[in-house]
Design a binder for these strands. Structure first.
Lengths: 221, 221
DNA sequence: GACATCATACCGACTGGTAGGTATCTTACG
DNA sequence: CGTAAGATACCTACCAGTCGGTATGATGTC
């Protein structure tokens, strides 16, 4: 079955990666609490012996899965085509377009592990909550960097007319995405997520639209 | 509802209501799967005997709790002051302001039971998913009614320049709210929710801002 | 109004399956 | 051989759901 063992150089911890990838899908489908470690083992084609060799326990797996998910996402967005757009405003809009483009397949394939887990675990599993918070914030921070550049490119600076920051707008994009996943799960249909991203794009377009009165009557401090 | 008693003035099924109210808080804190029926009984000051007298099982409680939550929310919004604003645009913005105003107390006191449950249960508990979907859609529909009136008041009609509908915008508001709760749970702080509602308000303000080029050059079809 | 009857509400000990975690054994590899 | 990886069997706590029982109060009948 796991005859890949004859090629040790392939991956240092191939089984651990299998368990983590299995966890990504199963937890996003069933939630953290309802997921049994045997479900994950089954999905990974391994047994509990292997599982408890690599992880201290279920909570430990959840924290590792959150990190794994975050690393996968970082790689995905780093390689995305929109990253090479020269205009930072276009990069911000390209991010939204890309998020819309990856709404493919079943819900557990594109929804967010972090948002799924933190809803159940925020009160009862501090370590899981902290991990989810950290990686969500990390992703938001990356988005905020483009937003900050876009603001600079359009001459937008927080003042009396701009009472929002790059950080708050970045978190807003994440709220829209997370919330759109909640609705998609309720409806068993990702179409609502795409509609939400259209609204988000419209908001961003207008925030960064040139030659509005947004820079205020006296941009100089 | 179940007024089989000949003395309906005595609270009918006070214990059932206690269990439902307990469920609202406990499930929003711990999530559906991790909540034990004994947790709910304890919180309600009752025993499992009473619980299983009133509900067929845990899933049955979840569905009833969803309906109960929806009914409570309907009452809350129906009585809210913004409801009596004459301008429908002001009612739409007042809705957002009201949602921001009720971000009080601990997270389980103001977050959404429907969004919490549907994330864990959408794949494994069809009846819970359907209930959450139904009541979220019902609330969104109520918001959409004000939005439709606001569009009419501003002369906005879906055309080449308005490629969104009252329904899609209403679901967008719900996505923002749901997502803001996810972030608030991750951060253990509702401040991010308030910031998100500020962004949402800004978007709505601008969609309904009078005398923009939004009605398009040729509003006639 | 007294009594029998019946339904509703509620209690709490018990059970049986489940699932997280452990202990032990086998195998592969350097 | 020693260590890491993984399989199998097992243990134990937990928890949804059951079941026999009690209390209360409504209803019917004489």
């Amino acid at each position: 079955m796991t005859a890949t063992r004859t090629h040790p150089e392939v991956a240092p911890h191939e089984s651990k990666a299998k368990l983590l990838n299995a966890a990504l899908y199963v937890i996003r489908a069933r939630g953290y609490s309802a997921t049994r470690v045997e479900d994950i083992c089954e999905s990974a084609g391994l047994t509990k012996g292997s599982f408890f060799h690599h992880f201290k326990g279920k909570e430990d797996l959840a924290v590792a899965a959150a990190e794994h998910f975050s690393a996968m996402a970082d790689g995905l967005f780093a390689q995305a085509p929109y990253r090479s757009l020269p205009d930072p405003v276009e990069r911000v809009l390209g991010y939204v377009d890309f998020r819309k483009a990856i709404l493919l397949g079943d819900l557990p394939e594109f929804t967010c592990l972090l948002g799924t887990m933190v809803q159940e675990a925020y009160e009862t599993h501090p370590r899981i909550r902290e991990a989810c918070d950290r990686y969500i914030a990390s992703h938001a921070h990356a988005v905020a960097a483009d937003i900050a550049a876009a603001m600079a490119a359009r001459g937008l600076h927080p003042n009396l007319n701009i009472d929002w920051t790059a950080e708050s707008l970045a978190f807003y994009t994440q709220a829209v995405i997370q919330g759109s996943f909640v609705l998609a799960k309720a409806q068993r249909n990702a179409a609502v997520s795409a509609d939400c991203l259209d609204h988000l794009r419209r908001y961003l377009e207008q925030l960064f639209r040139p030659s509005q009165s947004q820079t205020g009557p006296s941009p100089s401090a």
